[in-house]
Design a protein around this nucleic acid. Sequence first.
DNA 1: TCATTAAATTGTT
DNA 2: AACAATTTAATGA
Length: 223
Amino acid sequence: METLRELLRASLWTKSLSPAQLARIESETLVRDLPVGVPVCRKGEPVEHWIGLIDGLVKMTSVTPEGKTTTFTGLTSGGWFGEGSLLRDKERRYDVVTLRESRVAYMPRATFDWLLDNDIQFNRFLLMQLNERLSQFIAMVEYERLLEPDARVARSLAGLFNPVLYPDQQRDVQLSQEEIGYLSGVSRQRVNQALKVLENAGLVKVQYGRVHVIDLEGLRSFT
DNA sequence: TCATTAAATTGTT
DNA sequence: AACAATTTAATGA
């Protein structure tokens, strides 16, 4: 996707909005283009925006006081995030960093609150998205303990293509094996092996610096 | 357009 | 973690 308008059109919560309401959202929302490796938002910052990803790829991370970084999950284009912090916290609890060049939409808190107060579909969407995330994270904890590395890599990749959270239907991730390792909690060497297994199973095609998903359902259920 | 070079990524130990 | 091999992107002739 290239424009804020396209992102809004692809988002499930805009379906019931009038053209005037959409125009208001469009005019109040900021768009920024960010290069690779820069923060989209930082832990500890006051939460002033709901954030949408028009194009690109970002990751949610947390840095310990000692400087160790853990990656929670990747987020792909079409998705919105930060509603949890917006609803609950004064400060953001995690960092979001670009993994490749990204175009990001920042919806001000005031616009977010206005939607929350006036649009039932918007509230439904938030419930659904929060629920989807919850089950995603529960599944992560579950398979972190139960599954072998091949399956963990498979599911982290599949998670990037969750159609509920990221309506943009693309099948490519431009992501190094090192980054896939961070996303799935597996060493780069192990990712390398896992990708070969998945490629031999006909689920993905591995290219230099990117992975193309062939069989998404197969990836999700890979054991 | 082609060749050269540096940087990034991959494959292997 | 380390090393070599491979691929890409950038540069300049």
